[in-house]
Simulated assay, not measured.
Amino acid sequence: MEILPAGAAVEPTGDKGFSAVAVALLYHSGEIPAVNIPQGTKKLRGYIFNDCWPSTPLVVTIPEGVTEVASKAFCNCDLGSVEFPSTVKALPADCFADTSPGKIIFHAVKDSITGFPWGADNEPEVEWRG
């Protein structure tokens, strides 16, 4: 399931980050199993997935073109996995604060994104696909 299917009225907000409407949908829904962030998004704002506890852990796919992930983007949420594109070159030290992600996938050379575990409460599985 895509949170913003093709043809949706809400557009990605470019350099300003992912749409606040999409965040509201995530915050209030218990039934979103996967999140595909729209093409054209450049930045994930801080706290974008804060307090997001759907009925099953979130599976998040971040598209090519996103270059920035803000502090505490995945703070205090039920995150099954997240996949970062090759355009993300760094993560903030507190990216996963108060979260225990199941799996983090990078399209990058092994260990090229430093700071493990990026503030996570656990030591998540990390897969490098570079």
Rank of each mutant, 00 (worst) to 15 (best):
G14M: 04
G14P: 02
D15A: 15
D15C: 11
K16D: 14
K16N: 12
G17I: 04
G17R: 03
F18E: 00
F18D: 01
F18S: 05
S19V: 03
S19C: 13
A20H: 12
A20Q: 11
V21H: 12
V21D: 08
V21I: 15
A22K: 02
A22P: 03
A22N: 03
A24W: 11
A24N: 13
A24S: 12
L25D: 07
L25A: 14
L26E: 01
L26F: 05
Y27T: 07
H28M: 09
S29C: 12
G30I: 02
G30D: 08
E31F: 10
I32H: 02
I32Q: 01
I32P: 02
I32M: 04
P33M: 05
P33T: 05
A34Y: 06
A34T: 12
A34P: 07
N36S: 13
P38V: 03
P38T: 06
Q39A: 15
G40W: 08
T41G: 06
T41I: 07
K42P: 03
K42I: 07
K42F: 06
K43L: 15
K43P: 03
L44D: 01
L44H: 01
L44S: 00
R45M: 10
R45V: 06
R45A: 11
G46F: 00
G46N: 04
Y47T: 10
I48W: 05
I48F: 14
F49C: 04
F49T: 02
N50C: 11
C52T: 10
C52W: 00
C52S: 13
P54K: 00
P54D: 01
P54T: 04
P54W: 00
S55P: 02
P57C: 09
L58V: 06
L58K: 03
L58S: 02
V59G: 08
V59S: 15
V60G: 02
V60Q: 04
V60M: 08
V60N: 01
T61P: 05
T61E: 11
T61L: 08
I62V: 15
I62Y: 01
P63A: 14
E64Y: 10
E64K: 14
E64A: 15
E64N: 13
G65D: 08
G65I: 04
T67C: 13
T67P: 07
T67D: 09
V69G: 01
V69M: 05
A70S: 15
A70F: 07
A70I: 05
K72H: 13
K72P: 00
A73Y: 00
A73D: 00
A73N: 03
F74V: 05
F74P: 01
C75S: 12
N76C: 10
C77T: 11
D78H: 08
D78S: 15
D78E: 08
L79V: 09
L79H: 06
L79Y: 04
S81E: 09
S81N: 13
V82Y: 04
V82M: 09
E83C: 09
E83N: 12
